[in-house]
């Protein structure tokens, strides 16, 4: 239950309010699986759950992407190289990377939802031969709000990964698609009978996306989402993150839509 002090190696400003911290891992035998998060602690200010956005194949780094939305994330995004933040974790469930092997993989995300999916993408590219067609569908607010823009550009240059990006608002300078992320589905090549979809973004976007994926022929046992809830402990004790029968911190954040059942999508559950 004690945060482990970890030194900040570097800070990258991704967007106006979004920063990526490169931290020294809390232990020598550090490892995590794509989809997991940590509780990050700003000394004396507090602790918040932050998804890990780095490469699961690199145990020497703990990379986390944070959007400043409150006092703790404000403090965490104000750090500079050499500062120390506290880390507990990793916590939570993983994206179904093994289950998806041998299948087409559809990665659908919006906004900062790309951060918790980046480890899954990096894992997929590292083990590219294990997967069929791999498609990343990413929706952002505007061309200026694209997270990891350089890396997206690099990924678009690959022949073994299809990257489609759409934005909600743009002027004529933007040459790409404008519209919601689901409008990209019919441009992706995947077998709806067997493909696996990993979905992460604002809850409304995920609900909308799941409906559209089901319309395209996918079944809920192959649809996975990453849920967000208030968390204070990370170990299923504080009660804050409950979503129906789930403690999102330990039963999630990655949940299969088959496990979620209708109850989890009920208003205000």
């Amino acid at each position: 239950m004690h945060p482990v002090p970890c030194r900040v190696r570097s800070v990258v400003r991704e967007l106006d309010d979004t920063f990526t911290l490169d931290l020294e891992p809390p232990s020598d035998d550090w490892s995590f699986v794509p989809g997991q998060f940590t509780m990050l602690y700003a000394f004396g200010v507090g602790e918040v759950p932050i998804s890990i956005s780095g490469d699961p194949g690199d145990p020497t780094r703990l990379v986390q992407t944070i959007r400043a939305v409150g006092p703790v994330s404000d403090a965490l995004t104000s750090v500079v190289a050499g500062d120390v933040v506290g880390v507990r974790g990793p916590f939570g469930t993983a994206w179904p990377m093994e289950f998806a092997e041998g299948r087409d993989l559809l990665i659908m995300t919006g906004g900062i939802g790309l951060a918790p999916l980046r480890p899954a993408i990096l894992h997929t590219l590292e083990h590219r031969d294990r997967y069929g067609n791999v498609t990343l569908l990413y929706g952002a607010r505007s061309p200026e709000d694209l997270l990891f823009a350089d890396q997206l550009q690099q990924w678009r240059g690959r022949f073994d990964l299809e990257v489609l990006i759409t934005v909600d608002h743009a002027d004529r300078m933007w040459r790409g698609p404008v519209g919601v992320v689901t409008s990209l589905i019919n441009r992706a090549s995947f077998d709806p009978e067997s493909a696996v979809a990993l979905v992460c973004g604002p809850e409304i976007m995920m609900r909308f996306t799941i409906q559209e994926l089901e319309r395209s022929g996918m079944t809920e046992d192959r649809l996975y989402v990453s849920m967000e809830r208030n968390m204070k402990c990370g170990i299923g004790l504080c009660g804050h993150c409950q979503l129906g029968k789930f403690f999102v911190c330990k039963d999630g954040p990655v949940l299969s839509c088959a496990a979620m059942t209708g109850a989890c999508w009920t208003r205000e559950v």
Partner: peptide
């Protein structure tokens, strides 16, 4: 219907930073 649904979602501006 598809365009109306899309525009509803776009109107919500779901990716904006709430403060």
């Amino acid at each position: 219907v598809d365009r109306m649904q899309s525009i509803r979602i776009q109107l919500l501006d779901v990716y904006s930073t709430p403060r």
